[in-house]
Design a protein around this nucleic acid. Structure first.
Lengths: 252, 252
DNA sequence: GGAATAGTGTCTGTGAGACAGTATGCG
DNA sequence: CGCATACTGTCTCACAGACACTATTCC
């Protein structure tokens, strides 16, 4: 029965956002506190309904702007500044995932440089960056329960999928630069990899590898000394999106 | 406005299937001829509405069974025989992708061993395997137009995304075995890689690599001579799902 | 000077690709 | 026999990881 418009089950379609950033050497996700039932008072991923004439990506970009003020990179134009990377993650449609009605949520993954603490969006009374380690390690225990608790709905699962996507994607793409400001040093980029993967990397091999991959980094000519020590060259992201050879996660 | 159940835009949700197999050394996709408007008479990917109390994956598995008779592997149980691999691909929700109404389609990717020509499903009056090269190379030209034409809706895009997913996923996972019968030779597995990637591989290096990757292949003890030449050992898929080291596509 | 970070050089093991050579079936 | 396919061995180059060493800043 292909497409009988007169008799199809009614669905609500939402977008949920896994917004990741690196703050103080930790991978953090944006969560908002729910003001309504169900899961009132619990933390959840930001999201909302897709509008009637709105594309899915446009809905995700709109929600991202509402929650963070970030604009989205157009992947085709050389990114000027503090735009974010946005891509579709997966779709979650278990009939019981929302107790009130049938909701299909198209989750998106956004990667952003470190930002000032988020302003509360129009539709969320509280928002914060939380380390993903804390959000994902709630194995039924009571630790930090007041601080975080389990995320609402199936958002823990969605967050885990988003984090895994980010971890694997920075291996073979230049996406790690989306966590960095427009100009950054090799050391800053290395700390991004270390935070996302949760491992320590050899600074010397990392430097040789990352500067030797064509199209990954472009020197801007400037230097900085914001980390202490010898001044470091500043770079911006090069045109390459796929890294060849890839960066390899240790201990696989 | 998170979740106002009384006022959300109504959506129809469907699943579309990219079902791939390898036939006669070519990567082929399952297409069905549409019996209704719009795009009546054009080829399209199989698919249909998600039912009111049905999970997305269950809907995809149901459609797959209706079109091909295939059962889906449970990835957790050791796969006995000719089940298919099924995974979510991506979700397509452009407001204009269906001219009649707002339809969000959750596309799934299925990989199956070579099958007898498909029986027409209950909701499709014709079905066939077509080489993906023919389906994807319709650059506005008129060649093969009677045979294939452009796929209906945005299905060319969905198919292209599914093929690219399959091409990249057999690099770092053992998914290529999903294209093989329960027992197969190294040469047959190599022809799967060659068909999916569209390249020629060195049989000797391939053999050394694939038999040296732990957990990828398990010898069954039997041999076969169905390709002519010296009899080849028969294998079945091992327990490993992630290949380390990965198979690498040449010319990247 | 001492600590910290940036950047370069050198060695070694692993593995991919190229390809010689052997084994075993069919006609 | 020739031919096709299966399988093993060897060589070379590239690169990942380990780590010594130098450079430049701040204290």
């Amino acid at each position: 029965m292909p497409y009988d418009p007169s008799a199809f089950p009614p669905f609500a379609v939402t977008v949920d956002l896994v917004v990741l950033t690196v703050r103080r050497d930790a991978l953090c996700a944006l969560v908002v506190r729910r003001g309504e039932q169900p899961f009132q008072g619990r933390w959840a991923l930001p999201g909302g309904f897709v509008r009637a004439e709105e594309d899915l990506t446009a809905a995700a970009a709109r929600e991202l702007a509402e929650e963070t003020g970030l604009c989205v990179h157009d992947p085709r134009s050389p990114a000027p500044g503090s735009g974010a990377h946005l891509e579709q993650l997966a779709t979650y449609g278990d009939p019981k995932r929302d107790p009130r009605m049938r909701v299909v949520s198209v989750a998106h993954l956004a990667l952003a440089p470190d930002l000032p603490p988020p302003r509360a969006g129009g539709d969320a009374n509280q928002a914060r960056w939380s380390p993903v380690g804390s959000l994902l390690s709630q194995q039924g225990g009571a630790r930090h329960e007041d601080q975080y608790g389990q995320l609402a709905f199936d958002h823990t699962r969605i967050l885990a999928d988003g984090v895994e996507r980010a971890r694997s994607k920075i291996e073979y793409s230049s996406l790690a630069t989306a966590f960095c400001p427009p100009e950054f040093t090799v050391g800053e980029l290395r700390r991004v990899y270390e935070a996302v993967w949760g491992v320590a990397l050899d600074p010397r091999n990392f430097h040789r590898k990352v500067t030797g991959t064509p199209g990954f980094l472009v020197p801007t000519g400037g230097t900085t000394t914001r980390q202490g020590g010898r001044p470091a060259q500043l770079f911006r992201a090069g045109g390459a999106t796929l890294l060849n050879p890839p960066m390899l996660r240790p201990e696989v």
